[in-house]
């Protein structure tokens, strides 16, 4: 880890001021920053510790929705009774992520900003070519070991998948990121790699996530997060789905449905095509399976990650059937 200076911010404004300086990085849970600093991927000159700031934590849930402070810990949110009741998918996405220790450290704001687990991104000394780390240098992943790489939202420059779980649930339920002066939907917060994979979010220098709000909905209340992986725990998703569902009064016709995918795309991936195909339809095994295949529209594989194109729709289907009471 490169030598850095340490600044403990005493207010959010001080933190933002400090973050304006080139070479500075905000330290919240530290689980991404310190990990990547050890890998040599992030080399801050100044680390601005915001973990002691007050007023940026807290979880409020009411009839309109939830507001989660950026410094609330993953574990706190996962175990919050209000979140569990109104947003089961959000709670589940958190408790299925990382480990209990990491969930006690990592904050909600930091969780959104976690970086890809692409092996090539994480080992700069061996794989200098990485457009995300060093724009214009190339991509080492293409032609390499791609089992965990994205099949959706990729570009010629980058196929690194977004590794998080929480953001997948958030994007399904139209959550909004508060950045102090402005708000952005979670869907718009994350950027596709395109020709600028180094730019992963719309966050500007000096900006800081202060809170996340999630509007209430019947679909969010009847929701789940399904995560499929090789290891039973403590692993990133091979494919995951956040799904919420609201029926019409008949209890069979879909009034509202939300579907988002994790582990398969370069950003948290809302699949509106699947939603549109099911709204107004009676839920059945057949309608769900047919609609779920739309989740892979535009998918492109790069060798070993081809299985995700087969797997992800099955995960979507199972999650829909589960919230629909059919599985």
């Amino acid at each position: 880890m490169r030598d850095f200076s340490y600044l403990r911010a005493s207010s959010a404004d001080e933190a933002r001021q400090a973050a304006l300086q080139a070479g500075s990085a905000l330290l919240a849970g530290g689980t991404t920053l310190l990990d990547l600093a050890k890998c040599g991927v992030m080399e801050p000159e100044t680390v601005v510790d915001i973990t002691h700031l007050s007023g940026l934590g807290g979880i409020e849930v009411d009839a309109n929705g939830a507001r989660i402070g950026a410094l609330a810990k993953m574990g706190e949110v996962a175990d919050n009774v209000g979140i569990r009741a109104a947003f089961p998918a959000v709670s589940e996405s958190l408790s299925l992520a990382a480990s209990a220790q990491l969930r006690n450290m990592a904050t909600i704001g930091g969780n959104l900003l976690q970086r890809t687990r692409c092996s090539y991104f994480r080992e700069p000394a061996v794989f200098p070519a990485c457009h995300k780390r060093n724009p214009g240098s190339g991509c080492s992943a293409m032609g390499g070991i791609t089992r965990n790489h994205a099949v959706l939202g990729t570009s010629d420059t980058c196929i690194a998948s977004y590794p998080g779980d929480l953001a997948v649930a958030l994007v399904a339920f139209d959550a909004v990121v508060e950045l102090g002066g402005r708000t952005v939907s979670v869907d718009d917060f994350f950027l596709l790699p395109g020709n600028t994979p180094e730019r992963e979010t719309v966050l500007e220098r000096g900006e800081m996530i202060t809170a996340i709000t999630v509007p209430s909905s019947a679909a969010a209340t009847n929701s789940t997060y399904l995560k499929v992986r090789d290891r039973q725990s403590y692993e990133f998703a091979a494919a995951s789905a956040a799904v919420g569902l609201e029926f019409e009064a008949d209890g069979r016709t879909v009034r509202d449905i939300r579907v988002a995918l994790g582990g398969v795309a370069t950003k948290p991936w809302r699949v509106r095509g699947v939603e549109q195909a099911l709204i107004g339809k009676m839920l059945s095994l057949e309608t769900v399976e047919t609609a779920s295949r739309l989740a892979m529209e535009g998918a492109v594989s790069h060798g070993a990650n081809r299985y995700k194109i087969e797997l992800a729709p099955r995960v979507v289907a199972r999650a829909i059937l589960k919230v629909g009471g059919l599985a």
Partner: peptide, 10 residues
Amino acid sequence: VLSCLTLAAQ
């Protein structure tokens, strides 16, 4: 917590 990803200063 994991002490390997926590700064002593924190």
